[in-house]
Amino acid sequence: MFPTALLWAGLLGTLLLVEPGIGRRGRGGRESSRGGRGGGRESSREFRPSMWADQANLVSMMQSSLIAIKPTIFDINLNDMMRPICFLGQVSESDMPGFYEPKKFVYRNTSEKSDVPNVNRAAPPPSRASNAKTQTQVKPFPHKPKKDDPQGCGNPVCVIIDSKPRRFKSLCEFKSFLQTENRLSQVNFVQKGDCYDIIDNPEGAEKKTWSDNAKDCSMCRENDLCNGPIVVVVDLGSYLNGKSSAPGGGIHKENSEEGTKQSGIPFEFCSICEAMKFFENSENLNIATQLVGIGFGKTCNLFPLNG
């Protein structure tokens, strides 16, 4: 659309370059009827065929300067949506003197004999400590909706907060924690499933769902924890193909000239139940997507355009 608009603008501009000459010629004819030298000069400015050649050259120059667009219409692998690789800068060794130099260690000479007798020469007595495990295995939360929550609060989730994994029985319980800690305006990475289930079990919550009972959101609208705006940021690859482009995902490209990751799309909903209902309608989201970003509030407040 953008290059086409430029092309039409160029053609219109070249036509406008010709119109003044034609108009002046007509005016010149009227002036020549009145007599005078001015009319003669205006009538002599006739349209020349060489103008069309100048216009053609101008159009060809504009076409060559337009941005080339890939002719791909159906991009199944979403390669055109990949972000370019961001190479981090490296500090020059000349700017950091002594930083890259190997550290020097001073070792003591332990081969010298001491005149002080060793009082601990005898063998230590047998230990009376128990070999039993002092920590019991933590039982994960059942992967089902919390009993006291309204419909649509979702299943257990795991969230990393202050570098510590925290588990919650539902998104409503997670929102209650953020509200108590005054962190509702914070966007967090949320993974489906209990933290212990994800860490201890090989499959974790890979085949489990985000929600199972988001059918009727009437009770959610009457609940302060369930109701209210929520923004869910989903990877574009997860939304379209069910494969994340983030590190560890199915289509992540570690070293590629085309890019390494796709963008995240923020979806705003009026309540948690509406968000979970949206997830239940898509298998790519409800099952295949493992990690999303969640923030409680409006998109314009969580991601302001004015910084």
Rank of each mutant, 00 (worst) to 15 (best):
C172V: 03
K215L: 07
E280V: 03
N182E: 13
L236K: 03
R121N: 10
T4A: 13
D95R: 15
M62H: 09
V231I: 08
R45A: 09
I199R: 07
W210C: 04
R221N: 13
I272W: 06
R27F: 11
R25E: 00
W52F: 15
G13V: 04
E274N: 09
G307W: 01
P202A: 13
K192N: 01
P102I: 12
G28H: 04
Q179N: 12
S238N: 08
F174R: 04
Q151I: 00
E46L: 14
D197W: 06
V190G: 00
H143R: 02
F141A: 11
C220H: 05
F47E: 08
M1P: 06
S111E: 08
M219Y: 12
D235R: 04
Q63R: 14
I287H: 02
C273I: 04
L302V: 01
G28C: 04
G36R: 07
E203N: 13
P145K: 03
E42C: 03
T180L: 12
Y196C: 09
W8V: 11
F303C: 00
E31L: 14
F269Y: 11
R167S: 12
D216W: 06
S92T: 13
K192L: 02
P124E: 13
G204L: 07
C300A: 08
T110H: 14
G98E: 11
K104D: 14
V138P: 00
R183L: 13
V232Q: 04
M51N: 12
E46T: 14
N227T: 07
V234G: 00
D212A: 09
N118A: 12
N286I: 01
G10K: 07
Q179T: 10
C220T: 05
N155C: 02
F74P: 03
P140R: 05
C195R: 02
V232A: 09
D75Q: 11
E258T: 04
P142T: 06
K298S: 03
K169F: 01
M82H: 07
S130D: 10
C226G: 10
F177A: 08
R37S: 12
A288Q: 08
P266A: 09
G307V: 00
A5V: 10
C273P: 01
P145N: 02
G295P: 00
K243V: 03
W210H: 06
P145E: 05
Q90K: 15
T134W: 12
P145Y: 05
A214W: 04
P117N: 05
H143K: 00
A122W: 07
G154I: 03
S263M: 11
T4V: 13
A246F: 01
Y196Q: 11
S43D: 02
M82F: 15
D200A: 11
F267L: 11
L16R: 02
I69Y: 11
G264M: 08
A68I: 14
A5E: 09
F47Q: 10
N118F: 10
A246L: 05
G35A: 07
S282C: 07
L66I: 10
P124L: 13
Q135H: 09
A214F: 02
S256T: 03
T14S: 06
P140E: 07
S130T: 09
F296C: 01
R25F: 11
M1I: 09
N286E: 04
